[in-house]
Each structure stands twice: as C-alpha cells, then as structure tokens.
Computed example of a mutant assay.
Amino acid sequence: MIKVLRPGLMTTVQDLGRTGYQKYGVITSGAMDPLAHRIANLLVGNSGNEAALEITLVGPAIQFEEDTLIAITGADLSPTIDGEQVRAWRPVLVKKGARLDFKYAQKGCRAYLAIAGGLDIPIVMGSQSTYLRAKVGGYKGRALETGDRLSVGSSSALSKQILKQLAIQCGNKPFAESRWAASENLYPPLEKRRSVRAMKGLQFHWFQTASQTGFFEKPFYVTSESDRMGYRLKGPALQLKQAKDMISEAINIGSIQVPPDGNPIILLADRQSIGGYPKIGQIASIDLPLVAQTKPGEQISFTEISLEEAQELYVEMEVSIEQLTQGIYLKMTREGA
C-alpha cells in the first residue's frame, strides 16, 4: 500500500493504453512516454504494460506502508527518499514508512514511478489507464489527491528476487539502490531543443511548397495550451494550396494535424479517435518520448524520415527492450543485484 501525502501538479495511473475500442469512439489514453513507462516496469520485474504513475512537471510526495520495490524513469524531478537523493533508471528498495518526494522537472516533462506488482485497481475495457476528461479508469477516474491510498498487486518471482538482493545491502537505511541500471543508450537525451523524426503525412502534398519546406526546416514551439490530448505548436504558419474539405478519418498517436489557423497540433495519448484536419506529418514511434518530454515553451523541429527507416528504428528499439528484459533476468539468476 502507498499513501499520497502530496499529489503534485498532475499524477495519474497509466499503462500502455486502452486498445481495441476506438471504433466505438473510446480513446486509447495510456502513458505519454511509453518507452520510459516500459523500462520502469521492467526494472522492477513487471511486464511492460503494468500500471504505473505518470508524474507531470511537479511531482508528488508518497509514503510507503510496506517494503516496496520501485523504479523511476523519464524526466528528472530530483527524487529523494527521506531527504536523500535517489537515482533513477534502476531498481530501488524502499523500506516501510519511508517517504519519496519529487520536486519540479529540471529536464524533461514526465517521470514514471513503477512499483513491483503494479497497482491493484480495476481494469476498465482492458486497461487501468486514466482518461481524465471522461473520468474513466485509473484511480477513481481522476488524478491523485492528498490522502489517496493505492494497493499494490502481487509481485513476480523476479521482483521478489530483486527485492531480496537489495534487502541484503539495505541494512537500517530507508532505501537501497541496485548497483546496476538501464543503459543510457536505451533512452534519448532530454535536451531543451529536440529534433523529432517525422514522415510526410497523408495530405502533405496539399500544402504550399513554402509550408512543406518550412515544416522540415524551421523550429516550432510548444504552447501553454498543450495537454495529453495534443501539443499545439507555434511557428511558421502552414498553408494549403487551396481550401479543401475532407472526411474525418482515423488518426494515430504522433499524427500532426493542421487546422485553418496554420498552427500544427501533435496528437498524443488522449487524442480523439478520428480527425478532419489535413495531416502534414506523422512522428516516428522512436521519437514519441522526445515529444512527451517537451515542456511548454520549449522547441521542436522536424527531420524527414522514410517509413522504412522508421520501421527499422522501431525494430531496433524493440530488440533493445528485449535485451534489457533478458539482461535483468540473467543478472538476477546468476549474479544478484
């Protein structure tokens, strides 16, 4: 069991999303940064899709009511346990009664807190993800609040082994970190200026030549009107060659729509299921974490990539995730933490 002492700006329960229901108008939701989410879960011996806490910009304070194995990934929110700095991207044993505090995001926008065994909350349409607008899923369909208490699920055998090894080195301290961590090569660096790889969208040819060129050559800035549904960008206005009407069609995470004002919108985890604005681009899956970790006011630029290149990068990422999964298992079965 964990208790929320302070909720932070917006802390929600997310897994990898509610799939298979968009044909009914039910959105996917899920982690904004699925890569950081998956790695956090793997580090504590969970499957990659277990529910974890997504922490946005300003973090919570959480007290642990039993010995718990956790991992923190994603943005740097300066986490501490009982006032002592704790490192991210590795398993951490937190002793009963200890307090985990997050500050504000120094690098990136969203951190993820995974707990061995996941969170024991109801599954709604195949997912534990929170969709705030509809008050569906997660913890009572909302962001966490002061005083909330969340139950933890049953740990896997791997989780118990990691916890057992860390308990040996913990002693009387409030927490113990593993000596090993996920490789830095698994995750892109969190710079303020981000170059995001994107493919031409289905309606790319509808746009004026200057807009086609400007989309890939000039920077855009994330505005304060951005949220989990989409990032609104400000930059060179993107104009059509001529006004066109189009029938709404299915959209995907990372689709870049352009409404009549010419300012593009990147559609993200809480996107609608269909859209009727022309799409100038589609962000490659490999770079969705870069978008999710961009704060309002920070800069994004787009670099053209082919579908084939994007697919190759996606396969490489999945291979790296599988290597991490196998590496953790082998380390724990052969060497210990």
Rank of each mutant, 00 (worst) to 15 (best):
V94S: 00
G118P: 02
L268C: 06
R99E: 13
D76C: 07
G230Q: 03
I265E: 00
V26A: 13
K103P: 01
I55H: 00
Q208M: 08
G137Y: 04
A292Y: 04
K173Y: 05
G97M: 14
G171H: 05
T303Q: 14
I280C: 03
D67P: 02
S255E: 09
I321T: 06
V4W: 00
I62S: 00
G45E: 05
D227C: 12
D76F: 12
G48A: 11
K244H: 15
K96V: 15
R38P: 02
S255H: 10
A181M: 07
T28S: 15
Q239A: 10
P60F: 01
L313F: 11
G45S: 12
L163K: 13
Y277V: 00
M10T: 11
D270C: 07
G108V: 01
M32S: 12
F175V: 15
E308V: 13
D227P: 03
V315M: 08
I321R: 04
V291A: 10
G281N: 04
I115Q: 02
G45P: 03
S151W: 13
E50C: 13
T19M: 14
P174E: 11
N41H: 07
E66K: 14
E217W: 10
Y139K: 00
D261C: 08
P260W: 04
I123R: 06
R90K: 11
L5V: 09
Y277H: 02
S273K: 02
F216R: 07
Q203L: 04
V58W: 01
A198K: 03
Y231L: 15
L240I: 14
R18K: 12
Q128K: 07
Q242V: 13
D76K: 10
I328V: 15
T80Q: 12
I62P: 01
A182P: 03
G83N: 05
P260M: 09
A243H: 13
V26T: 14
